[in-house]
C-alpha cells in the first residue's frame, strides 16, 4: 500500500479516537468498531431477475472489510441491481427475484430463516438521488433509523449519535445551528451527506453507495470521498460509480460489470493499468459506454 493510503488510515484511526471521546462512550465505540471490522460481504453465483429478464448472472465477488470496492460499468449493466441484492432491497420490486448466495460476515443473508429487516440493519445504503424524509427535520432524519428500529436511547445519547454521524458525514459544521430545520431546506449536496449520516447513525457493518456523488458539485464530491477514506476502517464499503477517476482515487478493489456479468475484478491499480480483458480495456479507455 502507498504511503498516502497509510496516512489516511492513520487519520481515520485518529478521527475515530476523537469521536469516541467526544461521545463520552469510548468503550461502546471501540466495541462496535471491533465488531464491524470482522464483517465483510461476499457473493457466490449470484443471479437476479426482473420478471423474466435476467439482469445479473453468475456473479462471484468478495468485498472485504476495511476496504472500498468500486463497481463500474456502462449504464444499465446491473450495478444498482447488484448492490440492491446485497441488502435484500431487490426482492421488494414486484416480480423481482434473486438466486445464489450472499454471505454477510460469514452468515448467509438469503437463508431460510433470515429476516430481511435484520439484514438491512447491518447493511446500510445511500441512494443515487438524495432522499431525506421531507417532513422531518435534519435531526430527526439522522435518528430516523434508530427510531424505526425501536432502539431506546436517552436524549443525551441521541444527541451524541446525531453529532457523531453528522461529523462523520462532514456536515456538522454546516448544520449544527439549525438541526431543527426541515431536511428539505438543505442543498442537494448537503442532503446527500445527510443521507450518509442517516445511514451511518445505525452503525451498519457494510455501507452501499449507489453513485452517491452523481448529482453533486466537485467540492461536495471531494468531501464525500474524504469521508469514505476516513470511515473505511470501520466498514466494508461498496460504491457504484460512473466516474473512473473516482474509482481509482477511493477504492482498493474494482469490479467491472457488463450486461449483467462480472467481467473483471482486481486491485484497483492493476485493473486500471493492466486490464486482463479486452472489454475492460475498451471501457476504461473510453472506447464505449
Amino acid at each position: 500500500m502507498s504511503g498516502e493510503t497509510m496516512g489516511q488510515e492513520a487519520a481515520a484511526v485518529a478521527s475515530l479516537g476523537i469521536t469516541a471521546s467526544a461521545t463520552g462512550n469510548a468503550s461502546r465505540a471501540e466495541e462496535t468498531a471491533g465488531e464491524a471490522v470482522a464483517g465483510g460481504i461476499a457473493v457466490e453465483r449470484l443471479a437476479a431477475w426482473f420478471g423474466r429478464n435476467r439482469i445479473l448472472a453468475d456473479i462471484n465477488l468478495n468485498m472485504p472489510p476495511r476496504s472500498i470496492t468500486a463497481i463500474i460499468g456502462p449504464s444499465g449493466c446491473g450495478k444498482s441491481t447488484f448492490i440492491r441484492c446485497l441488502n435484500r432491497l431487490h426482492e421488494l420490486v414486484p416480480g423481482a427475484r434473486v438466486e445464489g448466495r450472499v454471505w454477510l460476515n460469514g452468515a448467509e443473508i438469503y437463508g431460510p430463516r433470515v429476516d430481511p429487516v435484520q439484514v438491512r440493519r447491518r447493511v446500510g445504503m445511500v441512494f443515487q438521488k438524495p432522499n431525506p424524509f421531507p417532513t422531518m427535520s435534519i435531526f430527526d432524519n439522522v435518528v430516523a433509523g434508530m427510531r424505526f428500529g425501536s432502539r431506546r436511547l436517552s436524549r443525551q445519547e441521541t444527541r451524541d449519535v446525531v453529532e457523531r454521524s453528522l461529523r462523520q458525514a462532514a456536515l456538522w459544521d454546516e448544520v449544527k445551528d439549525r438541526l431543527r430545520a426541515p431536511a428539505t431546506s438543505l442543498s442537494g449536496g448537503q442532503q446527500q451527506r445527510l443521507c450518509i449520516a442517516r445511514a451511518l447513525a445505525v452503525e451498519p457493518e457494510v455501507l452501499l453507495l449507489d453513485e452517491p456523488a452523481s448529482a453533486l458539485d466537485p467540492l461536495s464530491t471531494l468531501k464525500i470521498e474524504e469521508l469514505l477514506a476516513q470511515i473505511k476502517m470501520s466498514y466494508a464499503i461498496v460504491i457504484v460509480t460512473h466516474n473512473m477517476q473516482q474509482a481509482a482515487r477511493v477504492s482498493e478493489q474494482t469490479a467491472f460489470f457488463l450486461n449483467g456479468e462480472l467481467v473483471e475484478q482486481g486491485p484497483t491499480q492493476e485493473l486500471f493499468t493492466r486490464p486482463r480483458d479486452r472489454r475492460t480495456e475498451d471501457y476504461i479507455t473510453g472506447r464505449f459506454g
Binding site: R120, F127, N131, A144, F148, G149, S150, R198, V202
Partner: peptide
C-alpha cells in the same frame, strides 16, 4: 415516492414502521 419507502426500508425498518 418509492424512493422514500426504500430509504426507510434500507435503514432496517419493518414495513409497518415505514
Amino acid at each position: 415516492p418509492v424512493s422514500l419507502r426504500e430509504a426507510g426500508l434500507a435503514l432496517g425498518a419493518p414495513h409497518w414502521r415505514v
